[in-house]
Design a binder for these strands. Structure first.
Lengths: 198, 198
DNA sequence: AAGACTAGAACGAGCGTTCGTTCTAGTCAA
DNA sequence: TTGACTAGAACGAACGCTCGTTCTAGTCTT
């Protein structure tokens, strides 16, 4: 999985693309309410009028971001399901994906991870983090049927398998880890799988 | 560990206490920027003037909340270190504490977990989640010296041990789990410890 | 020339904050 | 005991500023 394959917002030349890329950065870095529309105007180089023409209002920008990110992440998870079989391979692929994504576009990861707890769009936030989790739980639950995963509550098992990886991602985003996540992948995966292997 | 032992804000009669309790609830439920000072005035029953007299400004309220929570959590972790010996017992005690705390005062847990990603006090946020993690890493690292924990990067090991528990807490706070966390404790702990046991 | 898009000045609502006043409790002199 | 005095706490109307949003004149493209 090359870093470029998970790029969400390649350098855009159109208004929509420029505004979304700017908003993602500013919202993530300083928060939705600390980001004024006029700042988006300044940084993106687009005018107030054109922004309101395209997005309706400030919340419309956040909504558009959401839709783009949710769709892309769903697609990435579907990809993993299609390309790998078996709980172990799929779970490992998910962790690898998340690590790659974090290194390639930390803002995207931060946006997704904390969507639920951001102060805007409180009712839409959970979608962002709940759907990936449900996928993980399904992977694990199916592994349980085949005996690949030991019998535990599927929710507990799923939480165990990728809880450690998520924690590492948080640490990386917080600047605690100096080396890229890729270097920890094997150790993280070993711990994760041990927790649910029969 | 009885739920009452982890109560942060018992019903208060003084202005400071009432404002802090109100702010915790409102900030957690609807966010810092979605909460106006006048709403705190209305809900807490205290006047604008007295709030500014006690806290200086709106940010002062958040700062005071922070200090109270960080101090209390540090104390709880120290308590665990004093009362238990060995990595396994300490780690399990931490998970149990976090589960109890989540059930007793979900707002406190939410405030602490997402402090880093809230839109206010961006430079103070990390303290709140980083310090507990450092404690966990120390517990695990010392367990490694005695052979109680297998040799892995201590950060990875710490992340593995309580990553799963944290994920469960997130799910509970998001309303995904219907049963209280206590009922999952044994299974969560079994998974957690397997991931780092020799 | 016509339509789609852009520009940025202007607007009004709502916010955090201030400030002059009142209230309360404690202290002391007579 | 009473009255005067003081300091801190509480009050809430009013202020000024910033923000999201609108509007109209202007600029491209075809």
């Amino acid at each position: 999985m090359a870093p470029d394959d998970v790029k969400f917002f390649p350098p855009a030349s159109d208004t929509r693309g420029k505004v979304l890329a700017t908003a993602l950065q500013l919202f993530t870095r300083q928060g939705y309410f600390n980001t004024s529309v006029s700042q988006i105007v300044r940084v993106s180089g687009c005018s107030t009028g054109s922004i309101y023409h395209h997005f309706g209002d400030k919340e419309g920008i956040a909504n558009a971001l959401f839709e783009a990110l949710v769709a892309r992440i769903d697609a990435l998870f579907d990809d993993i399901e299609r390309r790998h079989s078996g709980a172990a391979k799929r779970c490992r692929a998910v962790i690898e994906l998340l690590f790659t994504l974090t290194e390639a576009e930390p803002e995207v990861m931060e946006f997704v991870l904390y969507a639920r707890h951001r102060e805007f769009l409180p009712e839409r936030g959970p979608i962002c983090s709940a759907r990936p989790f449900r996928k993980m739980r399904d992977f694990v639950a199916r592994g349980m049927e085949t005996g690949e995963v030991r019998a535990v509550d599927p929710v507990v098992a799923a939480a165990s398998v990728y809880g450690g990886a998520l924690r590492m991602i948080h640490l990386r985003l917080d600047g605690v880890l100096e080396r890229p996540l890729g270097e920890f992948l094997d150790e993280v995966w070993a711990c994760a799988w041990r927790s649910v292997a029969p």
